[in-house]
Design a protein around this nucleic acid. Sequence first.
DNA 1: CATGAATGAGTTTTCATTCAT
DNA 2: CATGAATGAAAACTCATTCAT
Lengths: 201, 201, 201, 201
Amino acid sequence: MSVEEKKLAKKLRLLDAAYELFGSKGVNLTAIDEVVRLAGVAKGTFYLYFKDKYDLLDQMILIKSERIFAAAMETAQQKREAFSLSAADTTVSFTEELLRSLSVDRALVSLLQRNLPSFQALVLAGENGVLKAPAERLVELFETCAETREDAKKMLYIYISLLGSVCCDSILTGAPYSVEALKPQLFSVIRHMFSKEPTEP
Amino acid sequence: MSVEEKKLAKKLRLLDAAYELFGSKGVNLTAIDEVVRLAGVAKGTFYLYFKDKYDLLDQMILIKSERIFAAAMETAQQKREAFSLSAADTTVSFTEELLRSLSVDRALVSLLQRNLPSFQALVLAGENGVLKAPAERLVELFETCAETREDAKKMLYIYISLLGSVCCDSILTGAPYSVEALKPQLFSVIRHMFSKEPTEP
Amino acid sequence: MSVEEKKLAKKLRLLDAAYELFGSKGVNLTAIDEVVRLAGVAKGTFYLYFKDKYDLLDQMILIKSERIFAAAMETAQQKREAFSLSAADTTVSFTEELLRSLSVDRALVSLLQRNLPSFQALVLAGENGVLKAPAERLVELFETCAETREDAKKMLYIYISLLGSVCCDSILTGAPYSVEALKPQLFSVIRHMFSKEPTEP
Amino acid sequence: MSVEEKKLAKKLRLLDAAYELFGSKGVNLTAIDEVVRLAGVAKGTFYLYFKDKYDLLDQMILIKSERIFAAAMETAQQKREAFSLSAADTTVSFTEELLRSLSVDRALVSLLQRNLPSFQALVLAGENGVLKAPAERLVELFETCAETREDAKKMLYIYISLLGSVCCDSILTGAPYSVEALKPQLFSVIRHMFSKEPTEP
DNA sequence: CATGAATGAGTTTTCATTCAT
DNA sequence: CATGAATGAAAACTCATTCAT
């Protein structure tokens, strides 16, 4: 293993350890001491790779959410092409896929819940590398029901906010409603977001 | 002033001081020392009324949100009666009123942001005293577009989640969008939530 | 109930509560707050009857140990007269009786254990009212094997020390030896204390 | 000085400082603050080496008592061999030596007094490393007057209890009797413990 | 007499950060 | 690069004691 690989391995071990701990006890209640202990590296090493706890958090959310996000979009796009799905149905499909992935990765949900704002900013920031592609796809989907690209991005923002806050408790605690119980209403709202009829009186 | 009144006054002073500080610097960065200093009471007095910082936080959110919530509902109901508003329009009106109040009370928004889950649970818990009345009104509004009362509560849950997460950043940072910028889309989504047309293909 | 009786009742309630708590968690780890709460009196009332925690402790040990001490001596004396027991046998009998009482009052043992010094001082202080009579009897018993009264008191001191420290753990934890397991050796030592043969080479 | 040596030095400085303070004012009245100030280390360093005050206390008693215990046994054994002392005389010699050491180390006495039970357990626990050798010697001494090894250990237990509780007050306060004043009776009791004559009527 | 709210000095404990090795 | 011992400021929490009612 090269020096460069060893460095990466250490950083990844720190990220994994933090992932575990931040997810289960929250960022604020997790001491750097615990992270390095779980990662099996020295305390000083932490500061070699991260400015502080919150720097690590940001990097982690980025890495972890990218994978899941891209995969869900990949699946949704394939379905869209295979079955000529509408934008609304594609978004629902994407949502469904996302919920499925999140359901089996409670640690990530826990993280997102505690850090929704950073996550939202991330998705919206078109310039950002890692989430750029799937986010762009989503904007395009919402453009089908919006007058301008800017309006589409606003809808996307609302969609992401809704998704984030609705799902976290459902997945983590199942209270007050389970994900399955909320799906009909949630999908209905999403579909309505794509409806073009006037709602003003 | 009776002893009981003095006790209440002291507790309120602590709540007010914490409100101020939690809102401006966040709960985690606020030391109990600061709270009691601002409140002008002894440190021990804090522990006479609250188990810890988070106990105070819970009580505060309850108190503060009740006021703003009840007021918004009051206004919305008056408009509904005066102008025979539909359920959708009443909900929009309630939303508008709530956003207006929150816009001028950034400290509360800051609090809600950091504690959305507790707040959501609170609204949904019909048994809870303080938020019972306005929450019941909202359920009734959503019943006009839901098959069952249970479905209405789910829609309410989605609505509250949406509102909470959409607004917090908008109000606090104005980024990525200001409240005003998001209103058209937000209200549109809310109105669509009341639409009865099928959205399934 | 007269005023005077009410006052006494309060003091006794405090003593009983402290008895319970001191015995189970030790004096140092028991807060006055807990004592008054358990006693059901106001915090200020405590200071009406006791200077501080340790004042209460002293009074309590006195009261509690007097009863048990006097009773054991009473029994031992009766046996002595009935069966013309020797001083050694009377002391063994007294010891046996004491161990029996203590075995069923673990709270008191716990107290004595944590406060042996005060207790020893108490027994030896011939001037003290409550323990005077039984202590005097013990001195007399030891005088049968000592040259002077002063020597007898020293033997008594050794006896009390031995008894106190040997028994506490035995009764409370049964470790490393149970009271029953230690009795043969303990009684043997006590009997030897009364033996007059020279032990010097 | 190596890192490991420095660590040990720091831990010893803490132990020494605590020894000084615990001995003069008691464990409960000594704040960790004082310990670290006297030791000349930072507060955090304390928690690097000890869980809390009582953890330090336990470690300290072990270390301090081992030294004094082993030394007294060493001396007693030498005398035994030199003068062909009997088991009883060797034990008296050991006792004398121990009392002498303790008389000039009041801090340790103070400690033992407050923690006799832990100390007794320690001596009896044959498996324990540090006190194993001298304790084994004592058991052997008592075996000369006991039927079984188990009986010998019981006698040892009684002997240790007696010694501990008799001496503490004598050494520390000189009241009600000084060590010198008690020695005749104490030694007599010890010698009687080794006498084999029947004491039962 | 009795109360119990209020006090605040005192204590324990944590933890991000540094730096010599 | 990596380490982990050391730091000490800052935070949480306790509790004996007082005193106005």
